[in-house]
Design a protein around this nucleic acid. Structure first.
Lengths: 238, 238
DNA sequence: CCAAACTGTGTCCATCGGAAGCAATTCTAT
DNA sequence: ATAGAATTGCTTCCGATGGACACAGTTTGG
């Protein structure tokens, strides 16, 4: 797997060419067209042909701007997640971390394909690194080690991802109801083999909204984090 | 997106056909061949041609057993994760949940492509549901609501997934060192714009092993869970 | 014994990502 | 001003992919 292409595309400072016809396209235009397609019809609908056609160009012209499809997808994903919001600065650390995690959700919800696009080996992009930076900044002043700080962000972001994935398949949309109904149907027919799932699922649908799942999980994590930070700050050796 | 095919394949009780030549293949054989390819060369190397060739058959013969490639991948993923281990029964609840989450890791590590294969809308398979069942059983007796119990599992499994993804790109393998080096290189060159990342990364590589990341995150989550369960059991209304 | 059912195969097709070469355009150096 | 260099977008071509479809061979139930 070669990642140098993505690295160049995501991080390369491009010296504007001096001769030849002026480029009619830009990275932003191309990635934007790809994002629009992926938002509307899923990541599988994104092909070089399709992106180029939507822009009114031939597919091969895209290769003047993008080394390949994989790199284009990486660019789309980084662009789609946007930049992290500015830290409000007030509130305690956990509340700000909570806000950080919550701010991550809209991107995943509006662009569910980002989940698929960001699994597997890949190069971290500028926006993703900006998110990491703003999250790590919220952990400054704690006695957590470097790896531990990144781990906290991984847990938080991982949970938001999970919720987003679940949300992408359950809400009102066509696929959503289909999937939710499918799971309920499976358990309904074979509930004897899965009593705990049956009980939890029945209780869940009876309660109606499982929308507080995100908050519940975040509180869980942040409660644990608070205790961790406190115990590290506690000068007693044990 | 049509999921009925996956549903049939994963959950369908197939009545053995009565006439005609005996089938030379089985779901297990086909999925096993696909798993072997994906393990060795990644999910992208799995094609109908390749799977069939490895089995000594034509690609079209596979379509007698599998409705399509997507369904085959789903079957592979469910099979690759295996069944959850039996609950030891001793130890406190959080320790057993910890063991449950840890047991999830080897599957993801041995079959990193499962991460890619299980993102996006999909049908839950028998093995995945068995994992869910065994995890939910460990939460019996708590005063957590149904949705909350599933959420706890989602957080735990999500973290294991994240660690597995990180592990799949960082360890000694070719791609791994490349990716890790790329991230370090990016931050090294543009560290000024990402001071917190730079600090955390420097500290992390100085410490050497970030292998305890999994345990750290699990402890975080389970600490929070313990507090949640205790507060729910506490009869004081507030 | 024969028709129904089922198997594996061969052929065909649209689409995909990408390589190579070509004509047109524009800038730079003279 | 003009010739050469650089860069654009396009056309053509290729191998591989997922899948539809029809066909011949094999097994079994009535």
């Amino acid at each position: 797997m070669d990642l140098t292409g993505s690295l160049e595309l995501l991080w390369g400072d491009r010296p504007g060419p001096r001769r030849g016809p002026k480029p009619a396209l830009t990275h932003e235009l191309i990635a934007g067209a790809g994002i629009a397609i992926a938002d509307a019809e899923g990541l599988a609908a994104v092909s070089m042909q399709r992106v180029a056609a939507d822009l009114g160009f031939t597919k091969m012209s895209l290769y003047r701007y993008v080394p390949g499809k994989a790199e284009l997808i990486a660019l789309m994903a980084d662009l789609a997640m946007g930049t992290p919001p500015a830290d409000p600065g007030d509130g305690d650390r956990c509340a700000r971390l909570r806000a950080w995690a919550l701010a991550l959700l809209p991107g995943f919800v509006r662009h569910p394909w980002v989940l698929e696009a960001t699994t597997g080996p890949r190069v971290v992009g500028p926006n993703e690194l900006a998110w990491m930076e703003s999250g790590l900044a919220l952990l400054d002043g704690t006695r957590l080690r470097g790896a531990e700080r990144m781990d906290v962000l991984a847990v938080l972001a991982g949970h938001v991802r999970g919720i987003a994935q679940q949300a992408a398949t359950t809400p009102g949309g066509d696929v959503g109801t289909q999937f939710g109904a499918v799971l309920v149907e499976i358990v309904r027919e074979r509930g004897d083999r899965y009593p705990a799932v049956k009980a939890a699922l029945a209780e869940s649908v009876a309660e109606g909204g499982q929308d507080q799942a995100l908050g519940f999980g975040l509180d869980l994590i942040l409660d644990g984090l608070r205790a961790r930070i406190a115990s590290r700050d506690d000068p007693t050796p044990r």
